[in-house]
Design a protein around this nucleic acid. Structure first.
Lengths: 236, 236
DNA sequence: CTTCTCACTTGATAATTATCAAGCATAAAC
DNA sequence: GTTTATGCTTGATAATTATCAAGTGAGAAG
C-alpha cells in the first residue's frame, strides 16, 4: 500500500486515538485496491471479511428484497463502511458497489476484532463511530416515516445546500435515480417532485440546482436538527 | 433501590463483563422509580441525563415532526434505551412514555460516561449493544423501504408467532394503533390490512391472532434473515 | 459525425395509502 | 347498571405514490 495513504487513515476519528503500535498491527494486513465504476464490493448475506475504507471515489450501499432494490447510503472519502458487521462478526445487511472509480483500503475483519479486543481506546472510538451512525439511521427512519416524498426532497436539497457552503447554486452529487432510491421513491416520482418544488423557487436543470427562494423552501421543508442535522453520513 | 434489582441488571449483556467495582460505582448513583401508564419519561431534543433501564412494564419510543407522531420501538424488560445519546452526550432523538405501569432504573449519564472512559470491558459491551441495535435499525429501514404495508404486517405477525414459541394462536403484545404506527401506517389501514390477510389464513379477533395457514402467510411475507431475524429489539 | 445507450422526463393509469366521518364495541368510571 | 371514553372498524373519498409506456436528450461508442 502507498505510505501516503496511512496518514489519511490516521485522520479518521476511528483510528486517531489508538496507539501507534496497534495502528501498525492493523496496517500490516491491510491492502489498498482500486476498482472501476459499478463493481460489486460486497453482497448482503456474506460474512464480513474486511472493514472497508473509501479513500477516493464513491460507494453505494444498497439492499434488495423480492426483486426490489433500495439505496441505503452513499459513502464518500474518507469513511469506513460495514463497521457493525465487522465488529459483530455477522453477515452484511447491505451490498456495496462502486459508483465511480474508487480506491479503498481493506482491513481484515479478524485483525480489526483483535485490535478491538486489545485496545480500549480503539473500542471507545468504535463506540463513538457506531453511536453517531446509529443516530443517523434513526434520523433517517424519522425522515421516512414522518415526511412525504416532496418534503424529503425539500430537506435533501437544503442539506446539500448546506454541504455546498450555503451557495444558492450547486450540483447534485449523485445520479437522480440514486437520490430517488435513497429518498424512498421512484425516479418518475422524483421528476415530478422536482417540478413540484418549482413554486418554492427551486430550479433544477440536469445536475444543476438553483435555490431562488430559500425561505419558501425552508418553510416547506421545516428542517429539524433532530432529523436533518448530520452526526455522520448514513453508512455502516 | 431494591437489592433484588441489581442481579437483573447484571444479567444484561451490557453490564455482564464489567468489574464488580465499576458496577457498584454505577449503581451508587442509580435509582429505581415506578411510573403509571402514559407518563412521559423523556422528550426528544432534551439532553441525555439518565440511561434508562426497563425492569417491568413497557415503554414506547416515538418521534414527532410537524404534528405527526410515529412509534419507533417499544422496549420490554429487561433492556436499556437511549444508550447512544447517553454515550454521545447528545440530545435525545426520540421521546419515551410508559405504556403500562412500569418500573425503571435510571443511571446518571455522567456516571455511565465515566465508567465508559475507565473500563475497556464496558466500552466493548457498549459496542456490542450499539452495533446490534444499529443493525436492527438498518433492517427496519429495509422493511420500510422495500415492502408494502400488507407485507410488513405479514412479517410482523410471523415475527410475533416466533416470539410466542411458534404457537398458531397468540395475542398481540401492544395496541393495534401502536402496531400501525410502528409499521408506518394508519390505524384504518392496519384494519384493512388485517382483513386483507384473511385469504392467507390469518384470523385476528381483537388482540387474539390465529395463523391457520402458516405456509400461505409465509409465502406472502417472504421473510428474510437480513430483515426479520432479530439481533435485538429496535430500541436505543 | 453518426449511432447507440441510457438516464431522465412526461403522460396515462392503477395501486397504495391517508383522511374524514360515522358507527360499534369494549372497558373503565360513576 | 348506566354512562362515558376510547380504540377499533367500516365506508366514502382524496391524496400520494407506483407502474407502464413512450418520447427526449445528452454523452459514450463506433
Amino acid at each position: 500500500m502507498r505510505p501516503s495513504d496511512v496518514p489519511d487513515l490516521r485522520d479518521l476519528e476511528l483510528f486517531r486515538e489508538m496507539s501507534e503500535e496497534r495502528f501498525e498491527d492493523l496496517m500490516h494486513g491491510a491492502y489498498v485496491q482500486t476498482f472501476p465504476p459499478m463493481v460489486d464490493l460486497i453482497t448482503e448475506g456474506d460474512m464480513s471479511d474486511f472493514l472497508h475504507v473509501v479513500l477516493e471515489g464513491r460507494v453505494e450501499l444498497f439492499a434488495s428484497w423480492n426483486g426490489h432494490e433500495t439505496t441505503i447510503a452513499t459513502v464518500e472519502p474518507i469513511a469506513t463502511f460495514i463497521l457493525a458487521a465487522t465488529i459483530n462478526d455477522a453477515p452484511y445487511l447491505m451490498s456495496a458497489r462502486t459508483l465511480e472509480k474508487s480506491r479503498l483500503i481493506l482491513l481484515p475483519s479478524s485483525d480489526v476484532r483483535k485490535v478491538f479486543d486489545a485496545d480500549g481506546a480503539f473500542a471507545r472510538s468504535v463506540v463513538r463511530e457506531l453511536s453517531a451512525r446509529y443516530r443517523t439511521v434513526i434520523k433517517n427512519t424519522k425522515n421516512l416515516k414522518l415526511r412525504s416524498s416532496l418534503e424529503r426532497l425539500a430537506n435533501y436539497l437544503l442539506h446539500q445546500y448546506e454541504i455546498e457552503g450555503c451557495n444558492a447554486e450547486f450540483d447534485l452529487p449523485i445520479e437522480k435515480r440514486k437520490i430517488a432510491s435513497f429518498l424512498g421513491m421512484t425516479p418518475e416520482n422524483l421528476s415530478r417532485a422536482i417540478r413540484g418544488l418549482r413554486p418554492y423557487g427551486v430550479e433544477i436543470d440536469a445536475q444543476h440546482v438553483k435555490i431562488a427562494d430559500f425561505d419558501a423552501l425552508q418553510n416547506l421543508a421545516k428542517p429539524s436538527p433532530l432529523i436533518d442535522e448530520s452526526d455522520v453520513p448514513l453508512t455502516e
